[in-house]
Amino acid sequence: MLRASLLAALLLMPLATAGRAQGTSAGTPVSYTVVDDAIPRPLTASPGDASRGRAIVANRSVGLCLLCHSGPIPEERFQGTLAPSLGGAGTRWSVAQLRLRIVDGSRLNPDTIMPPYYRTTGLVRVARAFEGKTILTAEQIEDVVAYLATLKEQ
């Protein structure tokens, strides 16, 4: 596992730089490598920011997370019960595992209802305004991963 991660890290270094330059949800998503049930390498060169990540998670038209999940964001009163609480996500999953679950959970469970946040292919009748765009940018995904990793308590 560790060796595989290191290998993936080496392979993806140039791609990660490309990801930072992109900075938008339009265009082709940066490539990433799945190792076991995780994406070990960040999608961007610069690390995610947990406080920005929290704002994305709380925003129901950007992250959309709280439509289905609940989480330790008390100022957002109306939260979802379709999916597990985000509380403790940082204990249940590693950063690399969180990354794959947000990028494209269908790689782990084809029946998941979790939207693929970083996929533009295999989708049907996407509204024109969103066509070819990912739900979140690579930067936003790194921010959300950084935030979720801080959620250690159930």
Binding site: F78, L82, P115, L123, V124
Partner: peptide
């Protein structure tokens, strides 16, 4: 369908009654 890749049935059959 759609960018969120959801069907009517996912919400209204499988998860009806949830919030």
């Amino acid at each position: 369908q759609g960018q969120l890749n959801l069907s009517c049935a996912i919400c209204h059959d499988d998860n009806a009654g949830k919030k």
